[in-house]
Design a protein around this nucleic acid. Structure first.
Length: 802
DNA sequence: ATAACCTGTCATTTT
DNA sequence: TTAAAATGACAGGTT
């Protein structure tokens, strides 16, 4: 056993080292802790869960993944674990409104992660599970190394909050690095109001094709970077301005200031920027002209944040009739889009650069902001890019629900037909093609991707403990299953990725199975052992009735029975090994067996000296090592249990086995048959009590292990179910998205074919199609639409279609 | 020498 | 109410 363990462990270590050299990250702990009892036991020894003290230990290995309770890292570990659990709850279906905030946090933290950790792209793929955690961790003294990045993220938050406060008061806390992660309801409402204003403005801007948006979104990460790194900022700005400004200027001219509501006039620069960013992010967004003071930093930050807020919040608010389910759905879409983008970004840095280079007419008046946008982070870490995309693309996916209200409205400049189809096509192409490039390897094989695509700067800033923590906490904690699920999540749209997804799901299933398979193997082991010892077990359990014939047979059966008790646990395997070894007479293992003498069938039931045969039976095994000089009696005593020795001393005329296993009636008869003194009777009763209790203890421990095993199995089953459900959800979301795509195209088609009384097409900037409750479609002026959204649905009908 | 583990035992509770 | 079973806690032995 020891040798096996040693060799096995060493082999694993060597193999792991080899894999790590190749670049494959191998996390042994994951596999060990992933409910692989046999494997774990082989390496680590018998299940620690079997120890009773472990049962009372909340931090036992079952949950602690092998961390010793006394470990110094334990608190840290559990803190991490708690945070991870919190984040893990994010993927629950019931997403409360606060969830939104969490996601915002997630994005920020992601930025942090990206800046700080280059070596763990896989983390970004997670649903942000580790991000928040990471963020928190980052705030710990040990992680101060990455302080710069978090600050920027907090700035984002601050800007965001200020953004929300813009309407009433203006920016107040822009630059502060406060922890205002959460959007208050007021903020949300304000954003919503702004959003509606945007729509009301009627200034269409369909010009935005997807590539533009994407470009902007890609550039956004640069904002964060730029803020953190002033030097790079300058140089980058210059270069970026060249790229980014032209498109922006083109767009600015189209705005319609007059229609701005009072709130619009109140809005400050940051608000404007926010709106602009919203527009950039959302194709349906309107371009509103606001006085543009020269504020760059905060603005850029706010811009950064704005999309994220607008993503989730305004959508729900903007669709008054939308059920909460839709909101959830959209949030899920957000998540999905985020994941997709992350996946995209990981592999598509080249595309990013291309996009940034290929500027499309993108209307923002302010060169500063443009410059910020233009910062297109070529040298920025991938993760940052990813985060940016998270901000932008999800919005794209989200705009679909609003197609009817907003998307076509905003085309004052470009020809709607051309722009819209292009948009959709580009969108789809991006989603499909780009995602097609997504690769699981990118997730699991961070090193090459990182090295190729992103700067090394972030890596050094990341302390080793941080990286270690990330990897361990993220990969181990979240587990391959979750990770795989998340990945599958991210790849939902790409049919091409289906295979990967499957393989991925296969991976996840494997991971989920791997725990199960071991258990199965374990059970098989146990079953084998139990099968071998089943009869023995029965004989023993039935031994209460107590009928054993031959000593040897009983001895073996008893031994087997002992193993059989625990056969179902990992321990059983060991026990069975023992038994086998004993059966084969392996000398080195003989000493392993403890004194189970009480279990040993002492002999023929009615033999006056049961111990002799018993000890003889055991002697055959043990004597090989035990001193040969010992007299038989010593051996007998030595290998007998205390009770046996006592019984022998007291000259009890029958075997302990009978004392223990006989039914009460027979036991009483037996006592009555013999004339025994008080001492003998007391001893016999003690022997019986202890023997019974001994078996009871064994059963009790067995039950404990059974319970633990069943719980583990239940956890595995639940994980599998979770993975399956998530996969199904992914598919549903994908189909919904496809349907929305179709809807969009149909909308365009219908709208383009509409003609007024004079045969002229309706300008998309002024009219939009609205669904009525009865299923008919109305074309309505934008103003009406906006007003309707705000209050009552008064319908000015024009044409009715279908 | 020590820690971890296993098993038996006792005291107590539960059945 | 009692016996048996169950269980927590501890001790001793083994690795």
């Amino acid at each position: 056993m020891l040798y096996l363990k040693k060799y096995f462990t060493e082999g694993l270590i060597q193999f792991t080292i080899l894999l790590s050299l190749i670049g494959v990250r191998v996390d042994v702990d994951t596999y060990l802790s992933n409910q692989l009892p046999p494997l774990r036991e082989i390496i680590l020894g018998p299940s620690s869960a079997y120890t009773q003290t472990q049962f009372h230990n909340l931090r036992n290995t079952l949950d602690g993944y092998g961390i010793h309770p006394k470990s110094v890292d334990l608190d840290h570990f559990f803190t991490t674990r708690r945070l991870l659990n919190q984040v893990r709850q994010l993927d629950r279906l019931s997403v409360p409104s606060t969830e939104l905030n969490t996601w915002l946090v997630h994005r920020e933290t992601e930025t942090v992660v990206s800046t700080s950790s280059q070596s763990s792209p896989s983390i970004t793929l997670d649903n942000g599970a580790g991000l928040e955690d990471i963020n928190n961790i980052d705030s710990t003294p040990a992680m101060r190394g990455g302080a710069a990045a978090p600050e920027s993220t907090y700035n984002l938050n601050a800007a965001d909050s200020s953004l929300g406060a813009v309407a009433p008061e203006g920016n107040q806390e822009q630059g502060n690095a406060n922890g205002n992660d959460d959007l208050t309801k007021e903020d949300i409402d304000l954003i919503d109001i702004l959003w509606r204003q945007d729509i009301d403005l009627g200034a269409g801007r369909e010009v935005f094709n997807y590539s533009n948006r994407q470009k902007e979104s890609e550039e956004k990460p640069g904002l964060l970077e730029s803020k953190d790194r002033s030097e790079e900022q300058e140089s980058w700005r210059n270069g970026i301005n060249l790229q980014g400004s032209p498109p922006v200027d083109g767009e600015t001219g189209e705005s319609i200031p007059e229609q701005l509501p009072a709130i619009g006039s109140q809005t400050s620069l940051s608000l404007q920027e926010c709106l602009r960013l919203l527009e950039a992010t959302f194709p349906f967004g309107e371009e509103a002209e606001f006085p543009a003071p020269g504020v760059t930093q905060e603005i850029s930050v706010s811009n950064e944040e704005a999309p994220s807020t607008s993503q989730s919040l305004p959508l729900g608010s903007q669709l008054p009739g939308a059920e909460p389910q839709l909101d959830l759905e959209q949030q899920w879409q957000d998540i999905m889009a985020i994941m997709e983008l992350q996946a995209m970004e990981v592999n598509n840095t080249d595309l990013q650069t291309n996009f940034s280079g290929a500027s499309a007419p993108n209307g923002t008046t302010e060169s500063n902001t443009v410059a910020n946008f233009g910062l297109a982070t070529r040298s920025t870490p991938i993760n940052e890019d990813v985060s940016l995309h998270q901000a932008s693309i999800p919005s794209c996916s989200q705009d679909f629900p609003q197609i009817f209200n907003t998307q076509l409205e905003s085309t004052s400049i470009p020809p709607p037909r051309a722009s819209m189809p292009r948009l959709s096509s580009s969108n789809s192409s991006n989603i499909n093609s780009t995602f097609g490039a997504t690769n699981l390897t990118g997730i699991f094989l961070p090193p090459p991707i990182n090295g190729s695509s992103s700067n090394v700067t972030s890596t050094p800033t990341l302390p080793d403990p941080f990286a270690t923590l990330l990897e361990e906490s993220m990969l181990d904690e979240i587990s391959l299953l979750d990770l795989a699920m998340e990945e599958g999540f991210s790849q939902a749209q790409a049919s091409q990725l289906e295979d990967e997804l499957d393989s991925d799901s296969g991976l996840s299933l494997d991971s989920s199975h791997s725990p199960a398979s071991p258990s199965s193997s374990e059970t098989s082991c146990s079953s084998a052992a139990s099968s071998s010892s089943t009869s023995a077990t029965f004989s023993e359990e039935g031994a209460v009735g107590y009928s054993t014939d031959s000593e040897v047979a009983t001895a073996e059966t008893e031994e087997g029975a002992v193993g059989g008790y625990q056969s179902e646990y990992s321990k059983l395997c060991r026990m069975s090994y023992q038994d086998l070894s004993q059966f084969h007479g392996l000398p080195q293992l003989d000493s392993i067996s403890h004194n189970h003498t009480y279990n040993l069938p002492l002999s023929s039931p009615f033999s006056e000296h049961p111990e002799l045969p018993l000890t003889a039976g055991k002697k055959t095994i043990r004597d090989k090592h035990s001193s040969k000089l010992q007299p038989p009696q010593d051996l007998l005593d030595k290998h007998s249990s205390r009770d046996e020795r006592r019984a022998r001393t007291m000259k009890i005329p029958f075997s302990n086995e009978k004392i223990i296993n006989l039914p009460v009636d027979e036991f009483n008869e037996l006592l009555a048959k013999h004339h025994l003194n008080e001492a003998q009777l007391a001893l016999i009763r003690d022997i019986r009590r202890r023997g019974k209790n001994k078996m009871a203890a064994q059963n009790c421990r067995k039950r404990k292990l059974d319970a633990i095993i069943s719980l583990e199995q239940g956890v595995q089953d639940l994980r599998r179910d979770k993975a399956r459900l998530l996969k199904e959800k992914m598919e549903f979301i994908r189909s919904i998205r496809q349907m929305k795509h179709k809807m969009q195209s149909l909308y365009q088609e219908v709208f383009s074919q509409l003609r007024d009384e004079e045969g002229r097409p309706y300008p998309p900037s002024q009219y939009s199609l609205q669904y009525s409750a009865d299923g008919s479609v109305l074309i309505m002026p934008r103003s009406v639409t906006a007003a309707e959204q705000n209050r009552k649905p008064e319908k000015k009908q024009k044409d009715k279609k279908k």
